[in-house]
Design a binder for these strands. Structure first.
Lengths: 144, 144
DNA sequence: GCAGTCAACTTGCGTTTTGCAAGTTGACCT
DNA sequence: AGGTCAACTTGCAAAACGCAAGTTGACTGC
């Protein structure tokens, strides 16, 4: 799938976004890359929520075809691949932060002050700057 | 489903949010209420993207059980119901705006400057204030 | 240079979710 | 009382998902 194979040709920007990342897993994979600094297929598989391997492969392929994720060989370990966000992928940071804010406010289960919520509360600017920096690094990478 | 029937007990705020609205339709229904001022089942059905009736009924039920949507009889037309966002629902506005921003930036198809993208670009503050006002109205409604 | 391991997938298959169409229920209207 | 309208509900075929097992290509050690 890419943007020209539209599932919903409505022209609405919400629908456009949902066509790309409106499912249960895509944003969790992006989370691993954006906040968790995870980069390999195996690391994504090992993440907390236990995505199944065929779904992971499918989503990574879609994200790559959308230009949200970049895949390359790991120079240090040539049998492994590195998946990294492109600038377009890092541009999803505000969406991620908004979701974290909403969940931090409305998750009423006990003991749910997670590290991520805390970090956004205590040092949002630092986090945003860090992501901004990585976005620039990604931009340089792709211009080489 | 509600928050205590967790699909993914990871404690991650992204996963928490996705458990609530991480599918193809939920945020589109919320969009109708937040920006389109649509309130009835029939109006949601008639929206651009043509959600099917069983999915719509299911999602409205879930949103109600999550406390994101409030359902009541239409005082003017007693055979109809009004679905309206609760304050918790209006708190999703930053998520919606972030998605609109991202799509406005990255939807490369021609002729895709939609009304919503334009409005957010040209009068974001006015839009935010309007939603804030409606959120307060909703808060008053529920305290009665 | 062959045997084993590791990382990244792919395939098969049963279960769940979705999507379309048609049917039901409860107001309201005449 | 007969018809319409709004809001669902039900049935069933198609698609997506989730688990487990198998395959492929790169490195590693003997």
């Amino acid at each position: 799938m890419n943007s020209s194979d539209e599932k919903r040709p409505s022209g609405c920007p919400i629908a456009f976004g949902l066509d790309v990342f409106g499912d249960r897993w895509t944003l969790l994979i992006i989370r691993e890359m954006m906040f968790g600094e995870k980069k390999t297929y195996g690391e994504f598989l090992a993440a907390d929520e236990a995505i199944s391997t065929n779904i992971l492969a499918n989503r990574l392929k879609l994200l790559e075809s959308e230009g949200i994720v970049d895949k390359r060989r790991d120079p240090q370990n040539f049998r492994s691949f590195l998946y990294e966000l492109t600038p377009k992928g890092y541009d999803l940071a505000p969406v991620m932060l908004a979701i974290i804010d909403w969940s931090g406010k409305h998750d009423k289960r006990p003991d749910r002050l997670t590290a991520m919520v805390e970090r956004v509360k205590n040092d949002r600017d630092g986090l945003v700057k860090q992501i901004q920096q990585r976005r620039e690094d990604a931009a340089k990478r792709s211009s080489n």
